[in-house]
Design a binder for these strands. Sequence first.
DNA 1: GCCGTTTTCGGCCCGACTGTTTTCAGTCG
Length: 572
Amino acid sequence: MAITNSEIARIFEQMADLLEISGANPFKVRAYRNAARTVQNMGRSLEEMVEEGRDLTKLPGIGKDLSDTIEEIVRTGRFGKLEALKKELPEGLESLLAIEGLGPKRIRQLYDAFGVTSLDALAKLAESGEIYTLKGFGPKLVAKILKGVRLAKKAGHRFRYDIARPYAESLRAYLADFDGVIEVEIAGSYRRKKETVGDLDILVVAKAWQEVSDRFVAYEKVKEVVSKGPTRSTVILSNDLQVDLRSVPAESYGSALHYFTGSKAHNIKIRKMAMQRGWKINEYGLFEGDKQLAGESEEELYEKMGLCYIEPELREDRGEIEACMEGRLPDLVTLEDIRGDLHMHTTWSDGRATIEAMAEAAKAKGYDYIAITDHSRHLTVAKGLNEKRLLEQIEAIDALNEKMDGITILKGIECDILEDGTMDLPDSVLAKLDLVVGAVHYKFDLSREKQTTRVLKAIANPYVKILAHPTGRVIGHRNPYALDMETLYRACREEGVALELNAQPERLDLDDVHAKVAKEAGVLISVATDAHDIPSLDFMSYGINQARRGWLEKGDILNCRTLRQLRAFLKA
DNA sequence: GCCGTTTTCGGCCCGACTGTTTTCAGTCG
């Protein structure tokens, strides 16, 4: 009975939701949410830890009860207390929490009085007017609820980073351009470079807030003005992305930026540290009594707290505060550290640019090398290369390398890993290449055991040097396939195989958590764009964002190495 | 339900806003 950490985290979240609606002790609810976060953020598989008899109470936020609960879930696939609770409160009730304006108390009220358990039932009740018989439900709240129902029915309420970015950046520029704006910054998960963002939180220090707010709601892409207040205005953009603009006094800018950048967990930890010293942190500053100790800048805030500056990408309470205190915060990789791109396609398979055009574009980015890695024959829909065509491509690349200066084109392939773990092309052909990138492109639904065996066999092939998009997930579309990551990391280290952090914004695979654990396990990472055209070479920045969230440094990344060092790795 | 340089009991992050009230509960970030 295989179960992933994410699934366990989901169970804890559901438990927390239902407990909240049932009116349980709010701190118990919080304990479940904290545990869910711990489980979601940890790299090790809980299932394996249970099998190995590890002491789970060592994990933060996991005590005796939750440790037993995890064991129960791993061993039986069930959680008795949750099932008991579901008998009292029907399933689906927690889905109502997604509606703005509805929290546990009101949901409970609606259920007790009218038996509401679904969005449809809620909408019906609201439209009939019967809802007004409940205490505390007035016309404005009901209108908000009805709007929330319509919104909740639209799928996918988080936006992929790359989709939010153009909206975010043009709005930032629009505001920065205005005379009345002294500072402007987009905070929240956008600033932490999370792979998806829920909404945008923009902070401004304004000379005249009223004018800035007027300009904000007049932005051309604003579809709807939700509110326009004395310190905050909220709008919905044409793509349904919500944007909050907040006015912040200059002396509080740093604290506000820190507060609204989050993550919540990171902030809570810092705030607790302040409390222990008898201080208080809020969005206006760091205070000792009424005296402001810091607040103008984030740097000052961290310094006063006795901490070093922590990059936004690290602020997830995944050990960054402890690492800072122990002087082992990573020196995060930057885009400028990248010397080449080790995964891209051309017109030889399903790409849209020639080898030469891709090489020229990469050279213009200042890269020293690229690897051409078109698909192999099994991927017929992508015009995958057979032996004959691959040999022709090798000749073509040799000729280009003769001709071109300033960049080296490595001969590679993104070779399919077949169901039995053998490679799609014979070793005799793979031997002629500089680089073989192995990839799973079908049979995603094998059992964990079979999928792991398949991938391990592939990376044991002496020619395979990188495993592409290792978990196969596509954000909001396809879950990662079942794979024993711990064993994979070990095998990669032993075989000298790097794992890819695929920079396609819908993949970002490995993700941040996996990248961090892979690094800790001593595995090298290749941050690669998998570009199918020239503009997609720019995906590198998304890969770097995720790499930074995964604590990666220059030294952890294969394509930060010089060509000579890279060749040494490929030959080893 | 977790946790411990005031604690094995009694705490658990904090402030603002909204809509509904007539002093505040509920929700949100």
